[in-house]
Amino acid sequence: MALPQTIPFLGWSWDDLIFLVLAGLMLGGAVMVVIGRNIIRSGLFMILSFAALAGFYVLLGAPIVAAAQVLIYIGAISVLILFAIMLTQSKAGPSRLVFHHQAWAGAIAAIGLASLLVLVVLSTDWPAQVGQGTAAGTTAVAQLLFSEYVLAFEVVSVLLLAAVIGGVFLAKREESLDPGERAGDEPTLGRNQSPPVQADGRPSASTPRQVSGSARSTTAISERP
């Protein structure tokens, strides 16, 4: 399929168009993540933003990074976050106040930071730009990974193992250690006693779901890299 070299009427190159569209998607998605009232929508917009970012990686000639972006961020982390969202949504629903009371200060800081960064970027004389020709070939990346960066690779694997163990340990439900967990619990209940079956059954129903949810998600991540 033959496309014109430039976009009709505008005279832009297609790459430019793609860039602008992706930039709009990414920044728009990010803004929606940050200001969205509904936390689940925030998560979905984050996926959109990540996807646009993957497009940038392709545009920048790093397909392996783009693939990893899709697999890890969209496939694992976003899903993990969505699970967490579902686990932590209280019955009260989304909070009335999305923002912290210091949001105005955060906004000032963020704007200041942005203008500072833009200023720095614009005022810096970057090294000669070679252009799009230098794509990071997958083979070259793989060779580099297992030769020069092999130590870092191993360290990262150890880090991920530690993260798996830490995640399991943190999210693991400690039996009857936190009295807030069991509604209507008598405070005189012994620590080592197994919790009695509640009449409404709510704690006992929620418990396996939480444990399995977090455990499953952590294992799902750990398999990934």
Binding site: Q102, A105, A109, A110, G112, L113, L116, V120
Partner: peptide, 20 residues
């Protein structure tokens, strides 16, 4: 945490602006 983070952001700004 966020109060502290705001402090970090403000401090970063001040240092960067000061440096520049």
């Amino acid at each position: 945490v966020q109060n502290y983070a705001l402090g970090i952001a403000g401090g970063l700004l001040v240092i960067a602006v000061g440096y520049l």
